[in-house]
Design a protein around this nucleic acid. Structure first.
Lengths: 213, 213
DNA sequence: CTACGATGTAAACATCGTCCACATACATTA
DNA sequence: TAATGTATGTGGACGATGTTTACATCGTAG
């Protein structure tokens, strides 16, 4: 058991960018081991700094975790955006809307499978994802919830959702994919092969699409 | 901050039922504060015993948590059973099947809202709910997954699910309700009023029912 | 009755989060 | 330029947790 702490002894007294270094280290720990793995002392170790130095930049480890969580949510938003960009507007706006919904759902699920630690961190405890906190967004300036709302609007405008079907649609759609993701990540579907998970995801998206009309 | 540790000093050297006492204490902690709140030393304190005594009954705190988790899953199964018992067989087996599916879904969701700590504990990390471990069951001897399978069989037998619709139906149905539960418990839907959550749950069940045909 | 295995105790260690007092470097200003 | 103040990092300490090692005590089987 060797310490894998390649601290290059800093020559300057100041670190220069400590807050960022701590955050980066914490994000990596979250990536590897989920929310419980983000250890305050360890981040300072990796930054080559004494433990208390962290308290100049974060009120406590909970505040550090909050920052890490925001970063995770941003990455999730980015993953969804990537998937959305793959589908360009079409002649038929309904096709576009459907593809968009699928993109959000599968982007969400894909990120969960690709980065389980970050995904679990993103949703550990009460993330203020609802409020448009810029810290939770990616290049489009929208958080995952807002991205979902966007594509649902597209579906409504193109006539795929009628009348009251739009109300609360975010929650219905979100629940399905979120549930599958968590059952796979830290639930009894742990051993399910990724290919099958994705196939289930597709079926869920279709189910949502039909369920909203 | 007073210690609420009513340890009645035991007169005998042996405790008599320590393993069970630790488990009970741990379950209560999980109930109140979720998986992270089950502290090994605290369970021994409440049992009026030295910390190391726990190691005679559990390999480590992870093993203790596993046992607590199993208890939580059992309670979940019991809650679902309770809801299922409310709907008696009817003339029309399709009505019965539909009511049964609703019972499982709403029983699941209701337990999550009534006992958030236990619910979160039940699904923290890798629960072996899939394998028919008797530790996870309630009076019917079925774990939550098997209860769901049961009502889905009912739907198939009554003709509500046809052909390939039955394949993987457990996962589709489960994902939806599980997702809603977690979004509410430790997600962005944290502030949603319970009444609205239940209404969403009903819509989800209907959506699943239609989506499986 | 004796010896052994199961159960509980005592003491100790490493790690973690956190607080307090102190040290150092940079920037602003007199 | 020199003084001073503030932001930043250090050192040491405390209590809590999980865990290990050695020891004590009881019930029981031979």
């Amino acid at each position: 058991m060797k310490k894998n702490v390649p601290i290059e002894k800093r020559t300057t007294f100041r670190h220069g960018d400590l807050r960022n270094a701590l955050l980066t280290a914490g994000l990596e720990m979250a990536r590897v081991g989920g929310p419980n793995a983000v250890i305050l002392r360890e981040t300072t170790r990796q930054a080559g700094v004494s433990p208390n130095a962290a308290y100049r930049h974060f009120a406590n480890q909970s505040a550090l975790l909050d920052a890490v969580r925001s970063a995770c949510i941003s990455q999730l938003a980015a993953a969804i955006e990537d998937e959305m960009k793959k589908c360009r507007p079409r002649r038929d706006p309904q096709v576009f809307a459907r593809k968009s919904l699928r993109a959000v759902g599968m982007g969400y699920l894909g990120f969960a499978m690709r980065e389980p630690g970050m995904f679990r961190t993103a949703f550990s405890v009460p993330p203020p994802i609802h409020s448009p906190d810029p810290a939770n967004t990616a290049s489009m300036g929208l958080n995952p919830f807002q991205l979902l709302s966007l594509v649902l609007d597209r579906m409504q405008e193109s006539g795929l959702i009628k009348g009251k079907g739009r109300e609360g649609a975010e929650y219905l759609a979100w629940s399905t994919v979120h549930g599958l993701a968590l059952l796979v990540l830290e639930g009894p579907l742990h051993a399910m092969p990724p290919q099958m998970v994705l196939a289930l995801g597709e079926r869920l998206v279709v189910m949502v699409e039909r369920g909203l009309s």
